[in-house]
Amino acid sequence: MATLHLLSRSPFADTSGASCLRLLGPGDGLLLSGDAVHALQSGSQPFDALRALPADRPCFALAEDLAARGLAVPDFVQAVDYAGFVELTLRFERTNSWL
């Protein structure tokens, strides 16, 4: 009974990412979209926080948002397209979007 958390705001502008990490439990997943992918900027505190997540909390990112921002895919993140996004929402029992 795991939850996919969907983030879309910049971790530097908004607290939803930090709050999400408080609610992220074993088996839950994290999908970064929109400006939330700025958390994958290496050398940043959000990057370190995500890299430190246990392996039972997988991290995903929407490929188009990484590309738009010129960001590389870190080795602890799986980039997905929209077909992969759909599949993730089916793999997890529920999706919690941080609006």
């Binding site: 009974m1 795991a2 939850t3 609610l23 992220l24 439990g25 074993p26 839950d28 029992e93 529920r94 919690n96 979007s97 941080w98 609006l99």
Partner: peptide, 12 residues
């Protein structure tokens, strides 16, 4: 986390 996972649906 457990509170969320006790529910079928979640809207934030």
């Amino acid at each position: 986390a457990a509170l969320l996972n006790q529910h079928d649906l979640v809207i934030t």
